[in-house]
């Protein structure tokens, strides 16, 4: 099966759907198995990142560059950042404690941090999982953009 673009041009609508829900753009193009596997992989990696590092592993303000990659996974990244901001950083869950003085040197550091803030391996690996999920979905979106529509059952 060719992966050349349709004669009418690029699949912008399906690509946008693919960003909103990873893999769904491929499913809309008729590549059901391909899209379902991709969806399971991207959402599975993102969810694993959240389970490993907690919601704090997605942080638009403190880890901006990582968030650029995580945002590739679609609205789930923004939802996770919203959850982090609303549930953990406000102290709704856990307690807020004084920030260690060394962190106050950073201009972006908050004066008080949550006891649920993830650190060390948990945070690093959780962030890595979700960022890779975002990058992989970007490659899926680019693939969706130029993949030929099909109705083949085994595609």
């Amino acid at each position: 099966m060719s992966t050349l673009p349709d004669e009418d041009g690029l699949n912008w609508f399906e690509a946008a759907l693919g960003w909103l829900l990873p893999g769904y753009g491929l499913i809309r193009l008729g590549h059901r198995r391909r899209g379902a596997w991709a969806m399971a992989a991207v959402l599975g990696l993102f969810a694993s990142g959240l389970v490993i590092g907690g919601l704090d592993s997605v942080d638009r303000r403190e880890d901006g560059l990582w968030f650029v990659m995580q945002a590739g996974a679609g609205p789930v990244a923004f939802a996770a950042d919203w959850g982090n901001t609303r549930l953990i950083k406000t102290g709704q869950y856990g307690r807020l404690v004084e920030t260690p003085p060394s962190r106050l040197i950073d201009r972006g550091a908050q004066p008080r941090v949550s006891t649920l803030k993830s650190i060390t391996y948990s945070n690093e690996i959780g962030t890595l999982f979700s960022a890779l999920a975002g990058l992989l979905n970007v490659s899926l979106v680019l693939d969706t953009l130029q993949r030929r529509r099909t109705e083949e059952s085994g595609s």
């Binding site: 959240l50 389970v51 490993i52 590092g53 907690g54 919601l55 704090d56 592993s57 959850g83 549930l87 953990i88 869950y93 856990g94 649920l116 993830s118 650190i119 391996y121 948990s122 945070n123 690996i125 959780g126």
Partner: peptide
């Protein structure tokens, strides 16, 4: 351990 709110202790 509360999944999502707390990181995993690895």
């Amino acid at each position: 351990w509360i999944p999502l709110l707390e990181p995993v202790q690895m």
